[in-house]
């Protein structure tokens, strides 16, 4: 694979995606939501800070995911439909390079989106308490990795199946993958749900455990996070990203354009 080719495709992908007005809207809503959290003052300063963190981190996660799905959902199908992929793939460019370029170009925009939201939250917390809450970055970093996993998954689905089905499958995978292990154990303890729980367990074993990327509660309550947890979870996420990109690549490799 030629890294320069990947970067070339990534750069034009980012440039193209920046023309989607819907992304600005999602970003703007995220920005406003975090700004609004500053006015959540119900139970005094300690509780307010927890509330700001909780509310804002939930917002960053939610809008990050919406942004991710919106940016990846039509990224490759649009190029196939508009046939801008023709002159590109007729050049000395491998389809694998094209897929990686598409992924990285959009991931770069997700990075910028989350970075701005993260800095906004960080500044709000600093202005309210005069304390630097660096731990919010840990949580947002894992959300960022999670967005990569979701994005790669959308990319893999979207190269083969229709847009509504891609959306449904992604949401299904995210919800099942987001079930915490404790919740699965609780379900397993219910005798009437055995078949359903068995199916969910199997699916959950295959798809990424999205609950691993959510350390919001620890960050909100300032619990100490094991130093190994962050790199291990990031590695876990990157492995899934890689697997989904390989899947996207395989499905595009033999696709007739």
């Amino acid at each position: 694979m030629n890294l320069l080719n990947i970067l070339r495709v990534a750069s034009i992908t980012a440039e193209k995606s920046l023309r989607q007005k819907i992304l600005y809207l999602i970003f703007f809503f995220g920005l406003v939501l975090i700004a609004l959290s500053n006015f959540l003052n119900v139970f005094g300063l300690g509780a307010q800070i927890r509330l700001i963190k909780d509310f804002s981190l939930t917002g960053i996660n939610l809008f990050g995911l919406i942004f991710t799905i919106a940016i990846y959902l039509n990224s490759i199908p649009n190029e196939i439909e508009q046939k801008t992929i023709y002159p590109l793939l007729a050049k000395p460019l491998r389809r694998s390079e094209y897929v990686w370029g598409k992924f990285l170009g959009n991931y770069y925009l997700i990075f910028l989106n989350m970075l701005i939201l993260a800095v906004e939250l960080f500044l709000i917390l600093k202005l309210n308490t005069n304390i630097y809450y660096f731990n919010v970055f840990n949580c947002i970093f894992l959300y960022f990795i999670q967005c990569g996993v979701v994005g790669a998954m959308v990319l893999a689905f979207s190269t083969r199946i229709s847009y509504p089905l891609t959306l449904s499958l992604t949401l299904f995978a995210y919800i099942i993958g987001g079930f915490s292990s404790v919740y699965i154990q609780y379900l397993a303890a219910q005798p009437e749900n055995q078949i359903g729980v068995f199916i969910i367990k199997i699916i959950k074993d295959i798809i990424p455990h999205f609950d691993y990327f959510n350390i919001k509660n620890s960050v909100v309550h300032d619990y100490i996070i094991e130093p190994k947890y962050l790199p291990m979870t990031a590695f876990y996420g990157i492995t899934y990203i890689w697997l989904f990109i390989i899947l996207a690549e395989m499905s595009l490799r033999n696709k007739d354009l």
Binding site: K16, R19, P87, P92
Partner: peptide, 19 residues
């Protein structure tokens, strides 16, 4: 890739990044 390096291709209808 080697074959593509020797080709210039024009599709029937122009499909380019119009921006």
């Amino acid at each position: 890739i080697r074959a593509k390096k020797n080709i210039g291709y024009l599709s029937e209808i122009a499909y380019y990044y119009d921006f």
